[in-house]
């Protein structure tokens, strides 16, 4: 499933760049992220707790920066995480694109999310809605975080 968000941050692009590529800091903006710690160059390990009604998922996995081009203002991330209670995994690629907008910066976030295994048997449309919500919250939180620095 593909998700797309755009937020505008009142901060110059280089400042935004610094934060979005600070994965542990940026990850704090994802609701439910418990901890993110470095695990090698451009790799991080972390845990994400997600709750949809009575269904609680604890996704353990890693995030890697797979591409970055500061000049173009684009970066790509890949996240893989597994839930061993329900049995399933998520796999996401996130493409970020920053664009100057007269002093402010547009952050475009394009996510391709796969919900794998039994996890995916829980209504896909609801999962998509939830993921969309989370990415929306992430984008807004990121905007606040940048503005607050």
């Amino acid at each position: 499933m593909k998700l797309a968000q755009t937020v505008t941050v009142k901060a110059p692009r280089d400042k935004v760049w610094g934060i979005v590529l600070d994965v542990p800091a940026a990850a704090r903006c994802v609701p439910g992220v418990a901890s993110v710690r470095p695990a090698g160059s451009d790799r991080y390990q972390g845990t994400l707790a997600v709750q949809i009604g009575p269904v609680r998922l604890v996704l353990d996995g890693d995030i890697a920066i797979t591409a970055r081009d500061e000049k173009a203002g684009t970066a790509s991330f890949r996240a893989d995480a597994k839930d061993s209670r329900v049995g399933g995994a998520i796999k996401a690629t996130v493409d970020l694109a920053l664009a100057d907008r007269s002093g402010a910066t547009d952050i475009k976030i394009a996510t391709d999310l796969q919900v794998l295994g039994r996890l995916g048997e829980f209504g896909q449309p609801v999962i998509k809605r939830k993921a969309d919500q989370m990415m929306g919250d992430f984008a807004e939180c990121l905007a606040r975080a940048v503005a607050g620095r």
Binding site: P54, R56, V86, R118, E121, F122
Partner: peptide
């Protein structure tokens, strides 16, 4: 609840 249990979701 029984459906959620049987599906292993809870």
């Amino acid at each position: 609840t029984v459906l959620l249990l049987r599906q292993g979701l809870i």
